[in-house]
Amino acid sequence: MRVHPVDLGEGVRAFFTLSSGGVSPAPWAPETGGGLNLGLNVADDEARVRENRARVSERLGAPVAFANQVHGDAVLVLGAAERAAWAATEPPGSAGDADALVTDQAGLGLGVLVADCVPVLLADPVAGVVGVVHAGRKGLAAGVVHRALDAMTARGAELSRVRAAVGPAVCGRCYEVPEAMRAEVAAAVPESWATTDAGTPGLDLPAGVLAQLAARGVEAVHVERCTRTDGELFSHRRATEAGTTTGRQAGVVTLLS
């Protein structure tokens, strides 16, 4: 399994998965086959998705909890009970409805599923607090990144110590939207305003996330890979244009035990 690792500090392990390295067939796989689809709601066989998630957990060194992402700004804080649940042989499918997860529990992985939206990994290695964020168009405008940071600081994190990794997502040159939608999102996050390569209205969600992190004083690295054009990554937009479906990759993070 190939992944894109990121350094979020000592005692933290984090990476972004790619579309290969699993057991899913097309259309939940790249042309080479062996898709690492991690989404349970894209019509892939559940047993295959469980196997793919198990492979990611093994690579991370911890069971990985996922939320049912609903494009909002809710944050779920997971503790010892959830760590025990996800360490079981058959973990539940979702931690609940939310677009961000936070924990101070070592040995519990957090995961965020994407196929064009922005995955954000967060960590304060000194305080021992980590988080993940699913920043789609609606969640970005609603402030889900800020809500996740607030939940982390409530558990002892300091923004000056928090490290962030902004993962692969559709870029502003490829994310075409109606003019009214661009104006609506940019009214909340001006840095998201974009124009596509075709000269049409667009949104640059990674730029919006990076701006929100910078506004809070959070140091961030950006994995500049566009899901729409990168064949090693799943893209909902690319699949829709081709008249098919696709899988979900993930960003995952854990505090090492």
Rank of each mutant, 00 (worst) to 15 (best):
R2F: 02
H4F: 01
D7T: 08
D7R: 05
L8W: 09
G11E: 14
F15W: 09
F15C: 02
T17N: 05
S20D: 14
G21A: 02
G22T: 05
G22C: 09
P25N: 08
P25H: 06
A26C: 09
A29G: 13
P30H: 04
P30S: 03
E31K: 15
T32W: 12
T32Q: 15
G34W: 02
G34D: 01
L36T: 05
N37A: 04
L38C: 09
L38S: 06
G39I: 06
L40I: 08
L40M: 10
N41H: 15
A43F: 09
D44T: 06
D45H: 07
E46A: 15
R48H: 05
R53C: 04
R55G: 11
S57G: 13
S57Q: 04
E58L: 13
E58G: 10
A62H: 01
A62V: 00
A62Y: 01
V64R: 01
V64S: 00
A67P: 04
D73F: 06
L76Q: 04
V77F: 12
L78Y: 08
A80M: 01
A80R: 13
A80V: 13
A80D: 06
A84Y: 06
A84K: 09
A88L: 06
T89M: 08
T89S: 13
G93F: 05
S94A: 12
S94T: 13
A95P: 10
A98K: 07
A98C: 07
V102R: 00
V102E: 00
V102M: 00
T103I: 00
G107N: 14
L108D: 00
L110R: 13
G111A: 11
L113T: 09
V114A: 10
L122T: 05
P125W: 02
V129H: 07
V132G: 01
L140F: 03
A142L: 15
G143H: 06
V144W: 09
H146Y: 10
H146E: 15
L149P: 05
L149T: 11
D150M: 09
A151F: 03
M152I: 02
T153G: 12
R155W: 03
A157Y: 08
A157M: 10
E158L: 12
L159V: 12
V162C: 01
R163Y: 02
A164M: 10
G167Q: 03
G167R: 04
P168E: 07
C171Q: 01
C174M: 14
E176K: 08
P178R: 12
E179L: 12
E184M: 11
V185A: 02
V185F: 01
P190N: 01
E191D: 11
S192L: 03
S192R: 13
T196S: 07
D197K: 07
A198T: 10
G202R: 02
L203S: 06
D204S: 14
L205Y: 11
P206C: 07
V209C: 03
L213P: 02
A215W: 07
R216L: 06
V218Q: 00
V218N: 00
A220F: 03
E224D: 15
E224Q: 15
T227S: 11
R228C: 11
D230Q: 04
G231C: 05
E232D: 14
L233G: 00
R238W: 05
R238H: 05
R238V: 10
A239R: 13
E241L: 15
A242Y: 11
T245P: 06
Q249V: 14
Q249S: 12
T254E: 03
S257C: 13
